[in-house]
């Protein structure tokens, strides 16, 4: 049965791709059905931010988990998950700009300058942007593997900034941001220790 493993591996890529789109589909469907509660814009923006952070953490987890388990196939999904994290982060920012602030650029600018959770959030997004742009094979070749790798270590800074953004945003109940923070810290420690 030589074909079976190959077929699985072929199906896995598209399956993960579709799986990553499920949260977006659910948010949009709930929004269309009026199922996002009394403040749907806030619910949509936060939902997109939640998934950006989850996918970012998942991306960071792939290499440590691969080393721990020896499951090498995981490495194939690193780029896709990273790009989906960026995709949800971009939608999160778009929802804030277009729906929450309705393109009030002055208010947006002041928010970014004056509110530390906004400042840190924008830093996280700005750090993800060059990583998404240099994610192609052609860009890896152009930059050279060593320089590319150094650049992409920024993902840890972006992950930490994203958690800090969440931590600064909540008023009193910091339990969830602390859980994300602990997970990112463990993943970072695993990378530093395991190199």
């Amino acid at each position: 049965m030589p074909g079976r493993g190959v077929a699985w591996r072929r199906a896995a890529g598209p399956a993960v791709f579709v799986l990553c789109l499920v949260p977006l589909a659910v948010l949009l469907a709930r929004g269309a059905a009026g199922g996002l509660g009394a403040n749907p814009i806030e619910a949509l923006t936060r939902g997109l931010g939640d998934w950006a952070l989850r996918l970012l953490v998942l991306t960071l987890a792939l290499t440590p988990v691969r080393r721990l388990t020896g499951w090498t196939a995981l490495a194939r999904f690193r780029r896709m998950l990273g790009l989906f994290a960026f995709f949800y982060a971009a939608l999160h920012v778009t929802s804030y700009v277009a729906l929450d602030q309705f393109f009030d650029w002055r208010a947006i600018g002041l928010d970014i300058v004056k509110r530390r959770y906004m400042t840190v959030g924008m830093v996280a997004f700005a750090l993800l942007l060059p990583l998404a742009l240099t994610s192609t094979g052609a860009m890896i070749r152009r930059l050279g593997a060593a320089r590319w790798k150094r650049l992409h270590r920024l993902v840890y800074v972006a992950g930490a900034a994203a958690v800090l953004h969440y931590f600064f945003m909540v008023k009193a109940d910091v339990r969830e941001p602390l859980i994300y923070g602990a997970v990112v810290a463990v993943l970072l420690a695993a990378r530093i220790g395991g190199r």
Binding site: N39, I41, L99, D100, A107, K114, R115, Y117, F168, M169
Partner: peptide, 13 residues
């Protein structure tokens, strides 16, 4: 954490 210049009336875009 928030500018207080504006508000979103719940139910309004």
């Amino acid at each position: 954490r928030w500018s207080q210049a504006k508000e979103r009336p719940i139910g309004s875009f």
